[in-house]
């Protein structure tokens, strides 16, 4: 009789697993590790690409001093944090509210769900153009609406004033990404077993307790994942700024992402852009580490 045990495959040679993961390692090294290290080296050099194809001289911490002292970095960091924190918070809150409405079996909900996903499918650059027209002081929909409601507008236009421009960028992002939160949180709410909700009703949970102590804790994992995802995306806000304000007026809407583009690819100051890249790497990693720590500490 043929025993299947006799045909057990031999152990693979030790190098096979390494061989199999080598393509991903090579890609990671080529696309992430190498550029990062290349930028690290360049951050200590003065290098303007318009003047020379190679770094032009070692200047130590010079680029970092420039980035940190001239307000280049902190101004952009502040704008970025504002967009990221306020944007994520508003999108989450509105998204949750919409998701809670969607759970109710009201006529027309299927249609609403289908329509809701649409803003998310538009390229951010297109959203930027759409909103540029809608914010246009000479006939845009939004200034017209606000004026009709009696809300005073800055004379330079919404995008032209340093007090409103950043909020205008944020609003476009909220318009595009709130439905994303709504859909994901809706899916999360649907996954709550109905008998748990019924048990809470029998326990006489008030609507507020039902939300804060039953529903939100039960969709916490899903919520944390979308929040982190959006947090990272918002931290890189670039396309909306490019199309709507080009970082202006002044530097009032410059985000970190836009600053890097401005210094590196418009001014060609590779040294300064590299230094800011590294500052950003440090800040982003610190924030992500904190988020991961707080979000997942109790799941492990």
């Amino acid at each position: 009789m043929n025993s299947t045990l006799a045909h057990r495959p031999r152990r693979l040679p030790a190098f096979i697993p390494w061989l199999l993961i080598s393509p991903s390692i090579i890609l990671l090294v080529a696309l992430i590790a190498f550029p990062l290290l290349f930028a690290l080296k360049n951050s200590f050099y003065f290098w303007n690409l318009q003047m020379s194809p190679t770094p032009m001289g070692f200047i130590g911490w010079g680029n970092y001093e420039m980035a940190l002292s001239g307000g280049f970095f902190f101004g952009a960091l502040l704008n970025t944090l504002l967009i990221t924190v306020v944007g994520t918070a508003i999108e989450f809150t509105l998204g949750l509210a919409i998701a809670l409405l969607l759970v109710h079996k009201v006529p027309g909900m299927n249609m609403t769900r289908a329509l809701l996903i649409m803003p998310t499918t538009i390229a951010p650059i297109v959203v930027g153009f759409l909103f540029r027209y809608m914010y246009d002081p000479g006939g845009g929909l939004i200034p017209w609406l606000l004026t009709s409601l009696g809300i005073p507008l800055p004379p330079q236009g919404i995008l032209g004033s340093s007090t409103t421009a950043l909020w205008a960028v944020l609003f476009a992002d909220i318009w595009q990404w709130t439905p994303f939160f709504a859909i994901v949180l809706y899916a999360g709410l649907l996954s709550i077993p109905p008998d748990i909700i019924e048990a809470a009703r029998i326990d006489k949970a008030s609507p507020w307790a039902m939300l804060m102590r039953i529903k939100i804790p039960l969709i916490k994992k899903t919520a944390m994942i979308v929040i982190m995802l959006r947090f990272m995306q918002l931290f890189n806000t670039f396309d909306l700024v490019l199309v709507l304000t080009k970082g202006g007026p002044g530097a009032s809407t410059r985000t970190l992402g836009y600053s890097l583009y401005q210094y590196g690819l418009v001014d060609f100051n590779i040294g300064l852009a590299s230094a800011m890249t590294w500052l950003m790497v440090i800040v982003v990693n610190a924030i992500i580490a904190l988020l991961v720590f707080f979000a997942f500490k109790e799941f492990d």
Binding site: D195, I196, A199, I202, D203, K204, A205, P217, L218
Partner: peptide
Amino acid sequence: LGPGDRDIAMVFQNYALYPH
């Protein structure tokens, strides 16, 4: 009356305990 106002308690088939 709603479930919370009937002064009853229910044991569910899947227990329906609050997992968190």
